[in-house]
Amino acid sequence: MTDVTLTINGEERSASVPPETSLLRLLRDEFYLTGSKLGCDVGDCGACTVIVDGMPVNACLMLAGQVDGRDVVTIEGLATLEDLHPIQKAFEEFASLQCGFCGPGVIISAKGLLDRNPDPTKEEIKDALSGNLCRCTGYTKMIEAVQDAARILRGEKEAA
C-alpha cells in the first residue's frame, strides 16, 4: 500500500491506498469527495478537474502517491459554510449548468483561470474550458458566468 498525507481543501488528510489508486479514486473512494466526477478516466473530459499546487489538472491522470505532501483543492473546497464562491454563484444565476455532471470540473477550471488571470478575454476563457467537455450547454452560458464572476472578483461588480 502507498501511504499519502496531503492537504485537501485546507485540511491535512492521510490515507493508505493501493499504489495504482488515482488521485480521483483517492478523493472519491477514500475521502468521499464525490464532487469530482469520473467521466472518461483518461483525461479527455475534464469532469475530474482539481487544483494541485495551484494548477488545474485531471485527477484521473495522477496517482495518489504523486500528491503526497501536495495541496489539492476540489469543488468541495470552494464554498464556505456561509456562502457560495462567486463562480458558483454566477453559474447558478446564469443557469450555466444543465445536467451538471461536468459542472464541478468546469468551475474548477474557471477558478484556475481567474486565479492566474483576473481579467481574461472571451477567447482565453474558451481556452481555459477546452479541457472540460460539456454536452448539454454549448458552453455559452458558462462563458458568460465566468465573465460575470471575474467582474465580481475584480471588485467591478457587487455580488448578488
Partner: peptide
C-alpha cells in the same frame, strides 16, 4: 497540446 489540465501535467 491537449487542454489546460493536460498541459499543466
Amino acid at each position: 497540446i491537449g487542454a489546460v489540465q493536460t498541459r499543466n501535467l
